[in-house]
């Protein structure tokens, strides 16, 4: 199986406080990984480092994506290379319509692949197709990016963008937070429909709930900047049952 993302002994600090204390993670094509962990364990820092946000200073280790050193690429290059970050808190951009935003993004991706920009007609056709996939309100695409969207709409909008850009590696950062069960199902359904043999998904979540709908191949528990436990999907259930205290106690040797 082809390696997609290879994180080796990654260490990162924010203002001298070490947030990631040596993360090692291998993600291959076709796999779904779940990263679980309590608040403050470093999940979002890890996601943002892969996407290229300089939230933390990398102090050691490496991230290799499809054989390339990821640190050589800026955020837009990473996106065009097929990395997608579903934001925990999607950003509102007043005045920039979803349509223009997506058109600009999509055409950059196409340019990168040596393709012509999509015609207005083809673009709208694609937009319609993908909108159906994530069941988002048609009117949302005419509004400013995330501006005035409800929490659920914002998260659906992330999956919609993912559908438009068809990434190789999607990292969904707490996509389930703030979603009711119906929205959760729609989001999960969207992710499942976009799953292919040659792409991979990393689902970052606090709760096991989402993993009822997006079935992971591997579950990793991140605690205090380290992956302290890895296993199959049953690990998520065990974690749900026993709580993070169980992990804390194991780590602390109690």
């Amino acid at each position: 199986m082809k390696s997609m993302l290879s994180i080796k002994d990654l260490r990162a600090s924010i203002e001298d406080k070490e947030i990631l204390k040596g993360i090692t993670l291998e993600v291959n094509e076709g796999e779904v990984h779940a990263i679980m962990g309590p608040n403050g364990s470093g999940k979002s820092t890890l996601a943002s480092l892969v996407a290229g946000k300089e939230l933390a200073d990398v102090t050691g280790g490496s991230i290799t994506y499809l054989g390339k050193n990821l640190f050589d690429l800026n955020p837009e290059e990473r996106s065009k290379a097929g990395i997608f970050l579903g934001f925990q808190y999607p950003i509102e951009i007043p005045g920039v319509t979803m349509v223009n935003f997506l058109k600009a993004a999509l055409n950059e991706h196409r340019k990168h692949k040596g393709l012509e920009p999509l015609s207005a007609k083809d673009f709208l056709k694609l937009l319609r197709e993908k909108k159906d996939l994530v069941e988002i309100d048609s009117k949302l695409t005419n509004r400013s990016v995330n501006a005035g969207f409800s929490g659920g709409e914002k998260k659906k909008n992330e999956i919609f963008q993912m559908a438009m850009l068809e990434p190789k590696l999607a990292i969904l950062d707490e996509t389930d937070s703030g979603l009711d069960i119906d929205a959760l199902k729609i989001v999960a359904n969207g992710v499942n429909k976009l799953k292919r043999k040659d792409n991979a998904t990393i689902v970052i979540t606090h709760y096991q709930r989402l993993l009822d709908y997006i079935i992971p191949d591997y579950v990793h528990v991140l605690f205090d900047g380290r992956i302290v436990k890895s296993g199959g999907k049953e690990l998520a259930l065990e974690l749900e049952k026993k709580g993070y205290e169980w992990i804390k106690n194991q780590v602390n040797g109690n």
Binding site: N74, L85, I91, E92, G95, A105, H109, V145
Partner: peptide, 19 residues
């Protein structure tokens, strides 16, 4: 917002312009 756009593949210069 700039990072959000860049994370979708829009180059920084273009993202600034759009904003």
């Amino acid at each position: 917002a700039l990072f959000y756009m860049r994370a979708r593949g829009i180059p920084e210069k273009e993202a600034r312009l759009i904003m």
